[in-house]
Design a protein around this nucleic acid. Sequence first.
DNA 1: AGCGATCATGAAACCGGTTACTGTTTATGA
DNA 2: TCATAAACAGTAACCGGTTTCATGATCGCT
Lengths: 352, 352
Amino acid sequence: MKPVTVYDIAREANVSVATVSRVLNNTAPVKASTREKIMGLINKHQFQPNALARSLIKKETGMIGIILPDITNPFFPEVLAGLEQEARNNGYTFFLCDTGSHNQDSKAQYSRESQYLRILAEKQVDGIIMIGGRIDLAKCSREMAKEVQEVNNRLPVVLINGNLPGGKFHRVMTDQTIGAMQVTDHLIELGHTDIAFIGGYNQMSNTVQRLSGFRSAMEQAGIAMREDWIITGGFKVHTGKALMSELFSRDGRKPTAVVCANDLVAIGAIKYAVTAGLSIPGDISITGFDDIPLAESMIPELTTLSLRCLELGRTAASIMHQLITRNNQVSELTTLQPKLMIRETTAPPANR
Amino acid sequence: MKPVTVYDIAREANVSVATVSRVLNNTAPVKASTREKIMGLINKHQFQPNALARSLIKKETGMIGIILPDITNPFFPEVLAGLEQEARNNGYTFFLCDTGSHNQDSKAQYSRESQYLRILAEKQVDGIIMIGGRIDLAKCSREMAKEVQEVNNRLPVVLINGNLPGGKFHRVMTDQTIGAMQVTDHLIELGHTDIAFIGGYNQMSNTVQRLSGFRSAMEQAGIAMREDWIITGGFKVHTGKALMSELFSRDGRKPTAVVCANDLVAIGAIKYAVTAGLSIPGDISITGFDDIPLAESMIPELTTLSLRCLELGRTAASIMHQLITRNNQVSELTTLQPKLMIRETTAPPANR
DNA sequence: AGCGATCATGAAACCGGTTACTGTTTATGA
DNA sequence: TCATAAACAGTAACCGGTTTCATGATCGCT
């Protein structure tokens, strides 16, 4: 069954396709009687204009591509929700491209990124928003950066919480270095000095930022750092368990507080601690990063740093809209301030 | 800066666009020398064919639309991940349409669904997958069902865990009635007889299924139902807290076990119980539904029913692919068996 | 040498809209 | 009353690909 086209409508209404198009888009005056006749036919046939044909000539699709590493990590749906909220009003729809960073080697992930970059460009999206993946690499290869650079020359690209060498990308981010400082300061103020840092990946910029904030805070407080108390290895729950196990199975002094690279790692850390018979926050304080929705519903409620995912998303969407509508006033870098959420997993250290 | 087209390539290579198209699609033999010349130019100019133009004539876009109520509920990203895993191999990309059921009235949600239904059709997606929303309504209005019906006449629609009156939709679902029976049986076997059910919405089919399974199990065990111990009111964490509070602030006998409509509600219920000084599972057993990823990382680990989100997604994607490629052997209804995940929030009731 | 099959390629139609240009009416103003 | 502008509608080009059909060249074979 063939879908009905403007030509069908035009023929049946005894007008030209131009007129049909005009009533469709309200782009020029049409006599009331003709308009009604056409409207009637449109309703009668449930006519739906073909967006492909329209986009082909208008050179705009109302589609925005989103590339992210793992929709399963609660952080991403949250910023996605923010994106939707804002972009919906401007009539955009989203292409979701999950490069599936979980259970696979990073090589495959980046190749998928390249693949999606190409597909999105071919599909003529109006813009691309990237979160995570290569833009999180502390040292992204020239080649991988160039791919995005080239896309950026043809259409707007917005980076969330990341960057790429050889820049001039539009970015929106929350200041994670300051965030990590806030978290660490909070622990120091509680009286902790034996603080460990676990999770993340050394080669990822979010980890280096969080670590750098951690270091700064320790330094400013005049606390000696123990490099062997900084262990990286991932962003998942099991990472948290594994790294805590490594930390606590060692001989000698144990930390009284642990800063985790994100909430999932923190959850794993808590899990380990409780299993090992440690009470939280009595024996050990634990902090997260991201403030995923469940953080405040856990037992105990997780002290963490809100990256303001929702606003991150909304801001990115709004910047993207301005970029697409050629509003050139838009600033290249927007920085959001993180917010420390003090809850139940932190307390002064026990005397010993 | 204008993007380069097949015409540009053709001109520079002194061939016709037909030839360029042929090397692009390997659709007919081309002399090796010409092919190389054209390939060279394609690389030189970073030529990317315009998918809109291609789709316009080929009548296939490789795009699948997904309509869901709330990406922020961890259940959905999980099935999304399943969809991606499967569909990626077949070269599909996804339009994500979040109707944003959170913080808004349902009227707005359904109108957004209609809106997205129309947009997706106009954008010529190859198929639409729906989860939640109107397909979860126990009594969906004729009018709302008809909208989907009409879309279904023009392109494949697959429903996940839901249905619509006036059917003949392709569906994939996990048997939630049996699931609820399994959960309830588990509690009964542990020795519970005072079992409450909280969460969900009466007007939603998933809730009536889960409730019906609950009722059947109770009946089969010969346990008298207390209708005042069945309270609905939502699917969120705060719902769980609120309903538990209502349940436990009443005078008289209290349940020793609570079946929750989903994991988020269960988390809220646990939160309430612990806050109220009840120990879990000592004083009260609590079960969830869905088995979201964090369920097994909580403290205590949540006993829940796995809906096998990942498989749900993969199956839906695979069915959609068959539908798109006109494989008519595909069965209309695929049912997955749920899996009871016994963890730490359930135990025999305390003596009293 | 002659003939059909195969190879390689081009011309042009087509997909389904939008819009610049043009022309015909009708309304407006001096 | 006539010039001029505004309203209304049609023709055809255009967006950037794919594909059918036609044509000439090449090849194998008798």
